[in-house]
Every structure is written in C-alpha cells, then in structure tokens.
C-alpha cells in the first residue's frame, strides 16, 4: 500500500475471523488507518494511493476487476477517525444509506433510524430533536451518529477507526457494549490507541509498527505473553 512513492504498509498478511472483534493497535502513523481503508477500497478515492496484493472476503478478492466497489462498501461499512456527519438533520444522516439503497417508505425508515440510533447509544439524547442539524451535536455525539449511520446500512463487516477517541468513558463503555452485542452478527475490526479497550473487547489483536504487522494473535496472548519484544514493549507502555 503506497502513497505515491512512500510505502505506508509492507506485506501484511492477516486472517480476520468472522463474527469476532479484531483490534489493531500501534503507535500513531504506523499505518492502521491506511490498512483499514484497504479493506473496503476507500484508498481508491485518495489521490496518489495505490494498493498491491489481495484482500479476500468470503474467498473472493475484492481487488479483482470484477468487484462492484459500491456493493463492497455496502457490505464493509466504515466509521472514520474524524466524525463526518452530513450538514443535514440527524434523521437524514441515518436515513442516508437506506434511502440510497432504495428504501423510500417512511415507516420503515423511521424504524431503521430508531433502531440504529438505539444501537449506537444515541437515541435517548436525540429522540426529541431528530430534525436538528447534525453538525450542532457534540463531537462524541457526532461520532455515535456516524456509527448509527453505518449500522443503518446493515453491513457484514464494520471497520472502526478509533471510534471512541472523542468519547467520554460512559459513551465509550456503551460503544464497547454495543460492539460486543454486534459481534453476534457482524465482523468488527477496530483501531484503537486504548490498550484497555483492545484487551476488553477484542478476541484477536494485531500490532502494527512502521507499516508492518509485527504480531497477530489471540488478544490475551498479545497482552500477556507476546512473542515479539517490540510488542511486549508497546503493550507495557515502554514505547514512544
């Protein structure tokens, strides 16, 4: 995975299990976000970005020329590192995806919007002001709105890029609960800087360093008995 001539990710091979939570950790700038974007081909829309290699989803290579990218992104949803709600009403934000994919019917939309907002632990705060502009919400609320917006499309895989970095502990806790609930139906990959979060919610953890996947294993193993010295240093906080 390159930006121009700069190679941001080097030969990563990883098998992400379905219906589990996989955490990706690593110092800032090591390529976690870039790697996540490879998984739903969001790198396609970044000027100068280029990907080599294969990503298999249900045995099919998503970088195959026959892949329908739009369909792929419906199946693999993404919550971005920076909250990016549309400057329209809260309702319209959540309804955006379903409307896109052909659900015009009001009552079904209402139901989807409520379900998604509940799932993202935002419903109680916004249920009386669904017509309010989403950009007036606080940063943490905006991030949960973005999560709700992705859930409304009912993807199979949810990629989350530091979804909790702007949230208070209560909201973070709700999101973690949410992830655990979602695990039954969804495959979740989460990037986080919070070691406790990784160890609490995930079953598998991958440690990235300077564009390389240093170690990938069951979460308890990574945190208690890592094979690589660098992983050990990082999870024990002995790393820059």
């Amino acid at each position: 995975m390159f930006y121009g001539d700069f190679q941001a990710i080097k030969e990563v091979t990883i098998a992400v299990p379905a219906r589990r939570i996989t955490a990706l950790i690593g110092p800032s700038g090591c390529g976690k976000s870039s790697f996540l974007r490879c998984l739903n081909r969001m790198n396609d829309v970044i000027e100068g970005a280029r990907v080599e290699g294969d990503v298999l989803l249900d045995g099919r290579n998503i970088y195959d020329s026959r892949t329908d990218v739009v369909e792929l992104r419906k199946r693999v949803g993404m919550v971005f590192q920076r909250p990016n709600p549309f400057p329209v009403s809260i309702y319209a934000n959540v309804a955006y995806g379903p409307r896109l994919h052909g659900i015009p019917d009001r009552s079904r939309l209402d139901a989807i919007v409520e379900k998604s907002l509940r799932a993202a632990a935002l419903w109680d705060e916004v249920k009386d002001k669904l017509r309010q502009t989403a950009t007036e919400l606080s940063g943490g609320q905006q991030q949960r709105l973005c999560i709700a917006r992705v859930l409304a499309v009912e993807p199979e895989v949810v990629l989350m890029d530091e979804p909790c970095s702007a949230l208070d502990p209560t909201a973070t806790f709700r999101i973690e609960e949410l992830m655990t609930e979602l695990m039954a139906d969804y495959t979740i990959i989460i990037v986080t800087h919070n070691m406790y979060q990784a160890s609490r919610v995930s079953q598998f953890t991958g440690f990235f360093l300077l564009g390389e996947l240093i170690e990938y294993d069951h979460t308890p193993k990574i945190f208690e008995n890592p094979q690589d010295q660098r992983t050990d240093d990082y999870v024990r906080g002995r790393f820059g």
């Binding site: 969001m42 992104r73 971005f80 990016n84 400057p87 955006y96 995806g97 973005c146 917006r149």
Partner: peptide, 27 residues
C-alpha cells in the same frame, strides 16, 4: 465541500454520481 463528506457517502456504498448529487452539489 469537505473531503470527509465525500468519503462518508462513498463509505456507505454510494456511487460516485449519488455522492455528487446528494452530498456534494447540495453543499
């Protein structure tokens, strides 16, 4: 129009044209 809005729309499975029509042009 902020780049993040385009990415949000594309990330939700909108085509390029849908993104232009529903997000970029209105903004």
């Amino acid at each position: 129009v902020p780049q993040g809005l385009r990415h949000a729309s594309l990330g939700l499975g909108a085509s390029q044209w849908q993104t232009v029509r529903r997000v970029v042009l209105p903004n």
